[in-house]
């Protein structure tokens, strides 16, 4: 007996992602899913972004890590609501983990939610969480070949942040190659070259976020 199915294996994940998305829409919480390799600077970017936007928006953070809670502790010091998801070995966050984490937030008291995914350029690309936008981050010391080597993450992201541009003089990083390869995966990809250390380029990133947060409000 042949049983026809023709269904995406991650349909269950996508269904819960759609529920999360409906929650974000109902409470008008603009949500990003931040994805990069370990050490690209995700947590530092979040700290900087909170400092820059907190006077205008109520911000919450979900921290995803395989184990440990040191990232959540860094964010908690800033006095914003934060929930740590420890995946216990899984290389990505999925939509049901986010749904559980959302239960601990007062979404009505948030304008902007940042989900920091597990440091990994491969697996998180496949699991939608219900976010408004996936934001990929690449840091200069990782090398300019990453967009050619990991096409999916650049294909599914709305924004690419190229971080640690202050290190350009010290490493061989062909920015033209990185940007052009990233755009081959996704011609709509928005690029910001930034340094969380010197604040170079950060104003463009903040301005983009302000536009996005405003765009979902009635």
């Amino acid at each position: 007996m042949k049983i026809p199915v023709v269904k995406n294996v991650l349909d269950a994940n996508n269904r819960i992602a759609a529920e999360n998305q409906a929650l974000f829409a109902a409470h008008q919480v603009y949500t990003i899913n931040l994805i990069s390799s370990p050490g690209a600077g995700k947590t530092t970017l979040i700290e900087k972004t909170i400092a820059a936007l907190r006077t205008d928006y109520r911000i919450g953070v979900i921290e995803g890590d395989i184990q440990d809670t040191c990232d959540a502790e860094r964010i908690a010091k800033l006095g914003v609501p934060v929930v740590q998801i420890t995946t216990g070995g899984a290389c990505h966050i999925d939509s049901s983990m986010v749904r559980e984490a959302l239960a601990t937030f007062d979404l009505a008291a948030l304008d902007f939610l940042i989900i920091e995914n597990v440091g990994n350029l491969v697996c998180p690309a496949e699991f939608s969480l219900g976010e408004h936008a996936k934001v990929a981050m690449l840091s200069v010391p990782e090398g300019d070949d990453k967009p050619a080597k990991y096409p999916l993450i650049f294909h599914v992201s709305s924004v690419l942040l190229i971080n640690k541009i202050d290190l350009m003089p010290y490493v061989s990083f062909d920015r033209e190659r990185a940007c052009s390869d990233a755009r081959k995966n996704n011609p709509q990809l928005l690029l910001f070259e930034i340094s969380c250390k010197t604040n170079a380029g950060m104003d463009g990133w903040y301005a983009w976020l302000r536009t996005q947060i405003a765009s979902i409000r009635q």
Binding site: M1, K2, I3, P4, V5, V6, K7, N8, V9, L10, E126
Partner: peptide, 8 residues
């Protein structure tokens, strides 16, 4: 993405 087409 990964899709289940059919099974016997």
């Amino acid at each position: 993405e990964l899709k289940l087409i059919d099974m016997d």
